[in-house]
Design a protein around this nucleic acid. Structure first.
Length: 191
DNA sequence: CCCTGATTCGC
DNA sequence: GCGAATCAGG
């Protein structure tokens, strides 16, 4: 595949929208995110309002002893970028009255702190995402699917969240929220 | 581990 | 010009 005007346009458009290089690559097809990034650079359009996870803190560090720089590099074209918006990829969401008491717990899973000392927000979030849950079965679990169990294992109404996990954690972001409590009220009862 | 962009360098 | 490999950071 080559960079036709069309493809370049799509690239520019998406990049401008804050899409990640991998997403753009996926969209275009036939190219990898590396190719996209490479092109982006060659095109001159680079830094936008840094996307999502990576490359946020890349700040040109002042060199402590920059005396060995015979090359003159006065040109520093840096037209101020009025774009100061952060990534805004919020999918439209509709609210539905949450139901109560979900997040049961299979058995060997999340330590549930009295199911009420949990951040109301976290709970709300869980209810919210459970509607989006992929509802996968035990065998469909992979290293990167949320392993949060929902429903009663003894029922047909049982499934695992299955959403993309939070990096490192076994659950998706929402479930991580209720699974890993900051530990506060529940002090050590053993001492 | 997964993801992100940045750079390098052989083609 | 292109992009895989590699790097750097979250």
């Amino acid at each position: 595949m080559s960079w036709t005007d069309e493809r370049v346009e799509t690239l520019k458009k998406m990049w401008g929208e804050g899409q990640s290089a991998s997403q753009i690559a996926k969209e275009l097809g036939g190219v990898t995110r590396n190719a996209v990034i490479g092109k982006v650079h060659r095109l001159g359009l680079s830094n936008r309002t840094t996307t999502g996870a990576a490359a946020l803190k890349s700040e040109p560090k002042a060199k402590p002893a920059p005396k060995a720089e015979p090359k003159a590099k006065p040109a520093a074209p840096k037209p101020a970028a009025p774009e100061m918006k952060t990534e805004a990829a919020a999918p439209p969401k509709s609210n539905l009255p949450a139901r109560k008491q979900i997040i049961p717990a299979g058995q060997p899973l999340p330590p549930q702190p009295s199911a009420n000392e949990i951040s109301p927000e976290a709970l709300a979030k869980v209810n919210e995402i459970e509607k989006k849950a992929k509802k996968i079965s035990l065998m469909e679990l992979t290293e990167r699917t949320c392993k949060w169990p929902v429903g009663d294992p003894a029922t047909e109404d049982f499934w695992f969240c299955g959403l993309p996990v939070q990096q490192g954690k076994p659950y998706c972001e929402a479930h991580v929220g209720v699974a890993f409590q900051p530990m506060s009220a529940r002090r050590d009862r053993r001492r």
